[in-house]
Design a binder for these strands. Structure first.
Length: 126
DNA sequence: GTTCTGACA
DNA sequence: TGTCAGCA
């Protein structure tokens, strides 16, 4: 996870700030959580703490709602997005392992002997 | 002062 | 959803 993503996922905003940023009431924000649409963390005093990602999601939920979608619809959209996220993550992991395999294969060839760096078939900077 | 849970209209 | 109670 990049540092940028890390910062966006830090839960540092109390519900009062979220109210101002989203123009929603505390009642509505808590209701979204009750419906599993957002999952803010809790601090030592059981106070909800939201991240910038949470803000984005809340604003999105607000939009969906104003467009006529019901809670179930939004839960479905969010679930689908999560599935896609996991799949892309899996794809990324696979490409990394392929890259690693390529590097290992390259090392193997280099150590096979007699192969100069110029003749290295893996050394082509396209 | 702010937020929390539960409850009622 | 708004609002009120009673806490922390």
């Amino acid at each position: 996870m990049s540092e940028k993503e890390l910062r966006r996922s830090l839960s540092v905003l109390p519900i009062g700030t979220v109210m101002k940023l989203t123009d929603l009431t505390a009642r509505q924000i808590r209701y979204y959580e009750e419906q599993g649409l957002v999952s803010p963390e809790r601090n030592e005093g059981n106070r909800r703490m939201y991240s910038l990602n949470d803000i984005d999601r809340i604003l999105e939920v607000k939009d969906f709602l104003s467009e006529g979608l019901n809670i179930a619809d939004i839960q479905a959209v969010l679930a689908k997005r999560e599935a896609k996220r996991k799949q892309e993550q899996a794809t990324l992991a696979k490409s990394i392992s392929d890259d690693e395999a390529r590097r290992l294969l390259q090392d193997e060839f280099l150590h096979l002997g007699g192969l100069s760096d110029n003749d290295n078939p893996f050394n082509n900077p396209i």
